[in-house]
């Protein structure tokens, strides 16, 4: 499974498909930090929110790099649909960690944030909170599941918009979407350790449910 993860990451980088989401991430970060120095903790909360669609899009691109027949060859070579599916999610998560590293470190290099370096930990936590759901949403929008480019884009955009709209304060169903908005509010307004744990549990459950749906769909869509 690790060999297939490495092969897929290699394909993602070698074909140049990794460039577009990286440029998108850098553009978003430039806009976010272009207005002047911000408090690191608060800025990272917003950064994780805007990174969500970029990470989901990056996942879709990574999973779509491989030709359909090669994906099937990998499934036969591994001898397990589950491990083939997991290798794709793992590769997407690894690529997402790279993008998150850029989102965390770049603002310090260019003086976009101020505060204690320990706020990097808060930043890492809140970005990791977005990574799982983003990988799951991106996977649900990949070609193997959605079949057409239009449907893939629709899943990606709808999921990203709903994550924000249903995450607003007073939303009737905030549990339907990953807790991105709640995490942003947490970093700007503060909260208890229990709140942080609840957010982490919510994000983990949402990721698990979406990844389970992806795996179910992919069992029949090689």
């Amino acid at each position: 499974m690790i060999a297939l993860t490495r092969m897929r990451l290699h394909g993602f980088v070698r074909t140049g498909r990794a460039v577009a989401p990286l440029i998108a991430a850098l553009a978003v970060l430039s806009i976010l930090y272009g207005g002047g120095q911000a408090e690191a903790g608060e800025a990272y909360g917003v950064s994780a929110l805007v990174a969500f669609p970029v990470l989901a899009w990056q996942t879709k691109i990574l999973l779509d790099v491989e030709p359909d027949v090669q994906r099937r060859l990998a499934r036969v070579a591994l001898g397990s649909a589950g491990r083939e599916i997991a290798a794709g999610l793992l590769a997407a998560a690894a690529a997402g960690l790279g993008t998150i590293a850029v989102a965390l470190v770049m603002p310090w290099i260019f003086g976009g944030v101020k505060g204690e370096p320990s706020s990097l930990l808060i930043g890492l936590g809140v970005h990791l909170l977005a990574l799982g759901p983003a990988v799951a949403l991106g996977a649900l929008s990949c070609r193997a599941v959605t079949r057409t480019a239009g449907m893939g884009a629709a899943v990606l955009v709808t999921g990203s918009v709903l994550a924000i709209v249903l995450g607003l304060q007073g939303s009737p169903a905030p549990w339907l979407v990953p807790p991105l908005m709640a995490a942003t509010r947490f970093t700007t307004s503060g909260g208890t350790a229990l709140t942080a744990l609840t957010l982490a549990a919510h994000a983990t459950l949402w990721t698990a449910a979406a990844a389970w749906a992806y795996a179910r769909l992919r069992r029949d869509r090689a």
């Binding site: 290699h10 394909g11 070698r14 030709p67 099937r72 060859l73 036969v76």
Partner: peptide, 17 residues
């Protein structure tokens, strides 16, 4: 069997490497 070799009708050459 555990080890299966499958040769598809058309090999997907449109990939990196």
């Amino acid at each position: 069997p555990a080890v299966v070799g499958w040769v598809p009708e058309r090999f997907p050459a449109d990939q990196a490497g």
